[in-house]
Design a protein around this nucleic acid. Structure first.
Lengths: 195, 195
DNA sequence: CCAGAATACCTATCTCCATAGTTAGTGCCT
DNA sequence: AGGCACTAACTATGGAGATAGGTATTCTGG
């Protein structure tokens, strides 16, 4: 159900087509949420049926046309409602730690590869997120700039600060995972030596 | 697909019924993986069809009977294979950080409640995981004790150490989240004052 | 001995998400 | 004029998981 609210968040800045949204999901937003276009198009139609969006046919070139979705007052209210509703935490389902718990079954090289992949994955994420923080802070992030342009002055600081705070949390998380990965590599080495 | 391997991991110690497994998923393993019985029973039948398990009808009381699943050599090989296969990291999908990024839409009290819920959730998890580490270290964890009893002596230290390492990683992760939550509460306060 | 908790197993429905296609128009380069 | 990348949108299938039921037997406490 979060897809719906991720879409509302993006559409609260400006109207967009399904294609625009799916591109946005592939780039910036993808660091926090991902969705393929095959999920986005039907969801947009459902949201229009529920009155959260208005779809308008817009000409595209001489013969083509495309559907642009604009958020309605009802849509804005639904998003604000969601933001004021406590989040339900779903059950643990963590393949990485499931595997880690049985690492004695793996060859030492495969075990090392698991840990290295974990380090690599979270190193990449950390860089992406740190880059996002830089963009937010020096005003080069297009999405944020557009949003700030339609945000009343009194709310602008909060809008910026919460986004920075979010990505700082993701950086901190990535760093914890990287540290754990390095501890894992050390552990594998020490257990392979003494065996 | 990880459910299959979580089941194989448990069945590598001793044969169990679907009910045993679903209980185990509710308690100890649930800290890392969760699955309802409605998912477990059909998966066990599929695994038997695939030759990974052998189901044996076992009497249960005077009239009743139950199906106990025993891992086959093929099942053990499949588990070891999986343990030697690199893990695919799925895309980001994080409702907590999605909400955090738009916290300016929430009332300050609701924003505070989000962060407090995050702190509470991860505080509970940290305690459960720390308790698990204690159990593992002082030998009071039943699952581990049974496993060690069927593990060749040369592998016992690894079996223990990897499990401790796994839960230490989860404790570290929880602590990072708790810290982030506290930073969030401070941020909300500072932004509410100056507004 | 009986109520009720626990054990054992099963089914149905629904949403979500991944994957892998298809169709068709646009814009640009050569 | 043809090739090709991009824009735009849709469909179909299948697995995974959540949720909410159902049936029947056994064990245990009063």
């Amino acid at each position: 159900m979060s897809l719906r609210y991720a879409l509302l968040a993006l559409l609260s800045v400006e109207p967009m087509t399904g294609y625009d949204l799916s591109k946005r999901f592939e780039s910036s937003v993808a660091y926090v949420w991902h969705a393929p276009d095959s999920q986005i198009y039907p969801e947009l139609r459902r949201m229009e049926k529920d009155g959260l969006l208005n779809g308008e046919e817009v000409p595209w070139g001489p013969r083509g046309k495309k559907t642009q979705y604009r958020i309605t007052a009802e849509g804005t209210a639904a998003f604000r409602d969601w933001m004021n509703t406590p989040l339900e935490y779903s059950r643990e389902r963590d393949p990485v730690h499931l595997k880690a718990a049985y690492l004695e079954w793996a060859d030492p090289d495969a075990a090392r590869a698991h840990m290295q992949a974990h380090i690599d994955y979270h190193t990449l994420r950390r860089e992406q997120w740190a880059g996002m923080i830089e963009e937010l802070k020096n005003g080069t992030n297009v999405t944020l700039t557009k949003r700030l342009a339609v945000t009343p002055e009194a709310d602008r600081r909060r809008t910026l600060e919460y986004k920075v705070f979010t990505y700082e949390g993701l950086v901190a998380r990535a760093e914890t995972e990287i540290e754990w990965g390095h501890r894992g590599l050390e552990l594998i080495d020490s257990l392979s030596d003494s065996s």
